[in-house]
């Protein structure tokens, strides 16, 4: 996605793809939708892990909080999907802030453990707060989104919805990380003492990264709830957090196209290697180790960066 034309081509293709393939089956659309959900999750985690350098292991918790928030609002408040989506984003963003404010002062490995613990506790609450969440049974019957009085029933409609959400997420995160905010985040990640010595106050930036990342994970969660029309604690386990993190790592930290690539790879791989399904997580673990040893920057890492911050094309001039 180097040039503007290239980007338009890809987006156009994604919009037209289902129309071109006359007899596209629901299975392929379903896979595409799952890729979309994970693309949002890995893009949002990349803000926290890749740009702010915070080793967070509880992203599935934010995803879950978003899903439950949206589900509860739609079921009990009979709110529309769109309102629930906004509410889920706001609530998870707030949780990101709440979790972020005590933990951002911690060093990498400590932060990892604390966020891991946070993820486990959120899941425990989903399981144990039966009055609200119905515990392990989960919340069924979440209504589908509707637009101008038309309820979404076809997979193709959900496909376009997630495509729009992915594009929106990509656009917003891309603008933010390529502003001064992103440059400051990377500086903090590389060398916090240096960041302070050039006038950057680190904590607000780290908090911003946390709540921004959490916010978009909430968007993904709200979509998931409406798409599957059911939420249960099983979808938001520690291994799901690891899976999302692996997408960020394999794609390349601090690389937005990389995050999407990571989501595509890790959603497709188990589908293609179905006969190896038992070994899926084992292979994932091995892939993470090998990646760290041989290519820690990921398949589409920062080295591919073509533009300076502020969107200034390299070789001086404005883009």
């Amino acid at each position: 996605m180097r040039s503007r034309a290239g980007r338009f081509a890809i987006v156009g293709l994604l919009i037209l793809l289902p129309l071109l393939l006359q007899q596209i089956d629901d299975y392929i659309l379903h896979i595409a939708i799952i890729i979309g959900i994970y693309a949002i999750l890995s893009l949002s985690l990349n803000v926290i892990v890749g740009y702010a350098g915070q080793f967070a292991l509880g992203h599935a918790a934010f995803y879950g909080i978003g899903a439950y928030t949206a589900a509860l609002i739609m079921l009990h408040g009979s709110a529309s999907f769109w309102l629930a989506l906004a509410a889920a984003a706001a609530v998870t963003g707030l949780f990101g802030l709440l979790l972020g404010s005590p933990v951002i002062r911690l060093r990498g490995d400590y932060l990892g453990i604390v966020t891991l613990g946070f993820g486990e506790i959120v899941r425990l609450i989903f399981v144990n707060w039966v009055d609200v969440t119905r515990g392990p049974m989960g919340l069924p019957g979440i209504p589908a989104p509707s637009l101008f009085g038309h309820a979404f029933t076809e997979k193709i409609e959900f496909y376009y919805l997630i495509l729009a959400l992915v594009l929106l997420t990509y656009f917003i995160i891309n603008r933010i990380v390529h502003s001064g905010i992103g440059l400051n985040l990377l500086t903090i990640r590389e060398d916090e003492t240096l960041a302070q010595s050039v006038g950057i106050r680190p904590n607000p930036y780290k908090l911003l990264a946390f709540s921004l990342g959490a916010c978009f994970a909430g968007v993904a969660g709200a979509y998931w709830a409406a798409y599957i029309s059911y939420v249960s604690p099983d979808s938001f386990r520690y291994l799901d957090s690891v899976n999302i993190l692996a997408m960020v790592i394999l794609g390349g930290t601090a690389s937005l196209p990389g995050s999407i690539l990571g989501a595509i790879l890790l959603v497709l791989a188990p589908e293609i290697l179905r006969y190896m399904n038992d070994y899926r997580m084992m292979l994932l673990g091995l892939a993470i180790i090998l990646m760290m040893i041989f290519k820690p920057s990921g398949f589409w890492g920062e080295k591919h960066r073509k533009y300076n911050f502020y969107g200034l094309a390299q070789k001086g001039g404005r883009k």
């Binding site: 292991l57 291994l239 690891v242 673990g285 091995l286 993470i288 180790i289």
Partner: peptide, 11 residues
Amino acid sequence: PLISALGVSTF
């Protein structure tokens, strides 16, 4: 190495 450890854990 932290991420690698996570890979080991998953494995």
